[in-house]
């Protein structure tokens, strides 16, 4: 059983990383597009408000944009402001995800510390051991509780609010149920069998050393549920966690002007050579974009 559990975990991590990478590459390999920004462009001022703006230096502050998005990740501010009942479910639900990921990363480091001979417990001699113990405990418990509460409230919101229900899919409800199972089993195993998350750290020691460890029944159930959840995630819209960054930096705030002789101009010259197969009467099907643009019907 411990071998199965370990192999499933390896596979789940491998699978999610692979599929997310493929999806992200597909996203990023899309050609340069026309400008379609929306203001305010957070990482820049409204520079077209200036006379001769094209000659003035642009100050892109990517860090400002990044921090803006990060702040939103941890508050989901737009929802809190505009639809509080929805936020009440969506916020703990998302925090549950973020924290459970942090929890697993911390468990990995906990396992690594143990392999390196640093004990992880509340009375560990090393500060790092005590820190990891506490951080694992807090992230784990808060994530499970927030996740359980969030899954129930989001599902109720989707059922009770007609605006949301009419657009909900069966998969939405399956996802809420699945996340509930993941968080609930985590909570159950912590509460009844493993209050110090000792088993998780040992499990990670097994994964890191190849000498797989067995864990108690409920911890096993939670690990299996979490692994399947990782495998399931790429089939949902969950990538919006990451694509949201792209949507802001590469679309909503992408106001990069096309300066003569720039790299951007070279890329544009290339895409303008692409051929068109649109077939309305006013289009010269088969011609390149630049030829079509010069044609007067």
């Amino acid at each position: 059983m411990e071998t199965f559990l370990a192999l499933l975990t390896y596979f789940a991590y491998f699978f999610i990383i692979l599929l997310y990478t493929v999806k992200l590459i597909k996203y990023l390999r899309m050609p340069v597009h026309l400008r379609w920004e929306l203001y305010p462009v957070i990482d820049e001022g409204e520079f077209e408000e200036e006379k001769n703006w094209i000659e003035k230096p642009r100050k892109k502050r990517y860090l400002k944009g990044f921090l803006f998005l990060l702040k939103d990740y941890f508050t989901l501010f737009d929802y809190a402001k505009n639809n509080f009942p929805y936020w009440l479910g969506i916020y703990p639900w998302h925090m549950g995800f973020i924290l459970i990921i942090i929890f697993h990363i911390l468990c990995f480091f906990g396992g690594l510390s143990i392999v390196k001979g640093i004990g992880v417990s509340y009375d560990s001699e090393a500060f790092i051991g005590r820190f990891l113990y506490l951080a694992i405990l807090l992230t784990g418990v808060i994530s499970f509780l927030a996740g359980i509460f969030g899954s129930v409230v989001v599902a109720l919101n989707r059922i009770l609010n007609r605006n949301l229900r009419d657009y909900a899919s069966i998969q939405n409800f399956f996802t809420y149920f699945f996340t509930f199972v993941v968080f609930f089993t985590g909570f159950y195993s912590w509460f009844f069998t493993d209050p110090h998350f000792f088993e998780y750290r040992e499990f990670w020691v097994g994964l890191l050393t190849g000498r797989f460890r067995d864990v108690s029944f409920w911890t096993k159930i939670h690990i299996i549920a979490f692994d399947f959840f990782l495998i399931y995630l790429p089939f949902t819209r969950s990538l919006h966690y990451i694509t949201r960054f792209f949507a802001f930096f590469l679309i909503r705030w992408d106001d990069e002007p096309n300066i003569r002789g720039s790299k951007l101009e070279k890329r544009l010259t290339e895409v303008l050579k692409r051929r068109i197969s649109w077939s309305a009467p006013h289009v010269q099907k088969g011609s390149s974009w630049s030829d079509v643009a010069r044609f007067i019907p």
Binding site: P31, L250, W289
Partner: peptide
């Protein structure tokens, strides 16, 4: 090819 102009925002 046909929609390089808006493919990324549209797909997103």
């Amino acid at each position: 090819d046909d929609n390089w102009t808006f493919l990324m925002p549209f797909y997103h």
